[in-house]
Simulated scan of single mutants.
Amino acid sequence: MTKFQLVATAAMGLEAIVAEEVQALGYETRVDNGKVYFEGDEMAIARCNLWLRVADRVKIVVAQFPAHTFDQLFESVKAIEWERYLQVDAAFPVSGKSVKSKLFSVPDCQAITKKAIVERMKFHYKRLGFLDESGATYKIEISILKDVATLTIDTSGVGLHKRGYRQVQGDAPLKETLAAALVKISKWNPNRPFVDPFCGSGTIALEAAMIGQNIAPGYNREFISEEWPWMKQAIWEQARNEADEAADYDQELTIIGSDIDHRMVSIAQENALEAGFGDIITFKQMQARDFTTTLTDGVVVTNPPYGERIGEVEVIEQVIRDFGQVMNNYPTWSVYMLSSMENFEELYGRKTTKKRKLFNGFIRTDLYQYWGQKSRRED
């Protein structure tokens, strides 16, 4: 099989988790801001798209070179062996971005890149007229940072956060990739109870269930690279068969999601049914302050409302105060709460064991971590 330079893109702050995921699949990594680089073949493309829970996309790094002038950009792009990736009828839309570079006009960079690829393709395939672009699609990106151009081809298509189970969502849904990251940071394992007391549409609980039963997050969706002639169907079949064999559908889980809004509880239940966890995750309408349990050594992972609108902040502050008091009754439980409130620790009533900066979309947040006391229970 052919070796490719690959990159898994990730939200800022989540690169290390993505690197761990890539390494778990057997590939060595190099981490940069928002990116995890590794080398792999066609099977690596399939496996990473199926298995990466926290990455946004998997891309092929086609080339990287200095680009100070448009002529330099054109000639460098034209020199690339595009025929290695694109068949004669390939469709190849070009997107672009430019940061701190002399070539700051993104539309011009896109147009020049497209023209250079067309010239290369026409020469290689001995075509005089237009390329019809009626075949499989290859989404190409020209990205220029500090006068260094990087060309990539997206192998994922729709972002990897689109698992396929979320049929309905609330007003401020948590991205599936971030939800999975929160579960992974908590080090939760399926032998421990898991609770999300502000569950919304159920994303965190659903991601926990997939992790608990070792279900590949991309198992039930399609990827743009499945259309490519050189990504043989047998590769995808093998990768999906491996994922199916790795899943532990019989693993028992104690996962509970609750929310004050009965409408959100119904949405979460619908999404759980769609994901195949209808009988595994318990969703119920309940205020967080009413949480009680006889279980020990549990894990709470949650994303409470941030109170963005006028009048909401005071309400949310009281909710966090109440929940902090409730959790004082459960010293063996670990709590992980994502919040944008700078006074969160004061509200919760305890200094955090550890704090981690993360971005929920464009919102700067912190993951407040409170580690529970160890009990005699064996995981």
Rank of each mutant, 00 (worst) to 15 (best):
F344R: 09
F123A: 11
K357H: 11
A16F: 07
E274K: 15
K122I: 09
A90E: 10
K357V: 14
I224Y: 05
A209L: 00
S105C: 01
F194N: 02
D32Y: 09
F223H: 04
V158C: 01
F92K: 02
K115G: 06
S95E: 10
L6I: 14
I280P: 10
G13N: 04
V148G: 01
Q269L: 00
L14V: 05
E378Q: 12
I215A: 08
K175L: 06
I235E: 02
K146D: 14
W230P: 01
E28I: 02
S334E: 09
M210W: 10
F344W: 05
F70N: 13
T294C: 00
R84I: 00
L14T: 15
D290M: 14
A8I: 09
V99P: 01
K146Q: 15
E242L: 13
G349S: 10
Q238C: 02
R221G: 09
F4D: 06
A8E: 09
F130A: 12
D366G: 01
M12N: 05
N214A: 09
S201H: 05
I363F: 04
E242F: 06
T137R: 12
D147H: 11
N214Q: 15
V183W: 12
I280D: 10
A46L: 08
D248E: 10
S76T: 04
S98A: 15
G257I: 00
S266D: 15
Q110G: 03
G324N: 03
W188K: 01
T203N: 13
Y348H: 01
E270S: 15
D41R: 00
G218W: 06
V158E: 14
A180T: 00
R84V: 04
M264Y: 10
T293G: 03
L182N: 11
R364G: 01
V301S: 08
S143Q: 11
V77T: 06
R321E: 15
A8H: 13
Q238S: 13
I140E: 12
S76I: 08
K122P: 00
V7C: 11
F38Q: 01
I260E: 15
T177F: 01
P305Q: 11
A268I: 01
W236L: 04
R364W: 02
I260K: 13
D89W: 03
D89I: 04
T177A: 12
E317D: 15
Y219F: 14
D261S: 14
Q238L: 11
T365L: 04
P173T: 07
L367Y: 00
E378V: 13
H124R: 04
S375N: 07
D290T: 03
Q213E: 13
F359Q: 07
T302G: 03
L338W: 07
F123I: 11
F194H: 02
R377V: 09
S375W: 01
